[in-house]
């Protein structure tokens, strides 16, 4: 394949991947973060104690997470059509990606919030903080390094998932690799796709790590 043609294809696929990953990551986080905070604090005797709801939400989260992504994509096609108006294309691919992101983010955020010392919740309660203030000023603020790493991991996983939405014409780098590299026997396209994916994941991970380190004040040396 001519290099300029390859570049054009790569660029288009990269834009599609970034588009899908960004939108799905954003919406997934917006919905997954509160669920994660709830999961971390709704056990027996906790801040938003609701053990029954906690168990039900936990079950739904587990069910979604244990469904293989490619099956999820196909299984929810009617839902996708209802939301995006179509079941093919990049916009349509965002729906299953988002749906898969929500429980993923929720569990990771739950783990990050659970890392926060319970003594801080007690101190905040003793100061007269409301539950909302405890969540925003204490739990999320203290868990920021962990949350940053969780979201980094989410983005990296999303990049991987986005390779599978070629099945519904979602486009993106993975789709390019499969269609040109594998089905049309163009190893140079496959190689280029892999390199771009590696660079993309590397960039996301490094940025996330750097941000998390900046937020983390726990191991400062005087």
């Amino acid at each position: 394949m001519a290099p300029d043609m390859l570049l054009a294809l790569l660029w288009k696929a990269l834009v599609q991947t970034v588009h899908m990953v960004t939108v799905a990551g954003l919406i997934g986080t917006l919905i997954g973060l509160p669920i994660g905070v709830f999961l971390a604090n709704s056990g027996k005797g906790e801040l938003f104690a609701a053990p029954m709801v906690n168990r039900i939400v936990g079950l739904v989260v587990n069910a979604t997470r244990s469904t293989p992504f490619i099956i999820l994509v196909v299984a929810i096609i009617p839902f996708t059509r209802a939301i995006a108006g179509t079941s093919i294309g990049t916009s349509a691919a965002i729906v299953p990606l988002t749906l898969a992101t929500i429980p993923f983010v929720a569990r990771l955020i739950e783990a990050a919030i659970r890392e926060v010392d319970r003594g801080l919740i007690e101190a905040a309660r003793a100061m007269g903080a409301s539950r909302w203030q405890i969540v925003t000023k204490v739990l999320i603020a203290e868990a920021r390094p962990g949350i940053t790493l969780a979201l980094t991991l989410t983005l990296v996983s999303l990049i991987g998932y986005s390779a599978m939405v070629g099945a519904v014409g979602g486009g993106g780098l993975g789709d390019l690799g499969i269609r040109y590299g594998y089905q049309r026997f163009m190893p140079e396209v496959m190689a280029a796709v892999v390199v771009v994916l590696i660079l993309l994941v590397q960039a996301v991970q490094s940025a996330g790590d750097a941000l998390a380190r900046r937020f983390d004040k726990r191991n400062r040396q005087s």
């Binding site: 007690e122 003793a126 603020a141």
Partner: peptide, 14 residues
Amino acid sequence: VGMIFQHFNLLSSR
């Protein structure tokens, strides 16, 4: 009513 704790319970991020 102010309160102080054995393990201080300070926010590490502040």
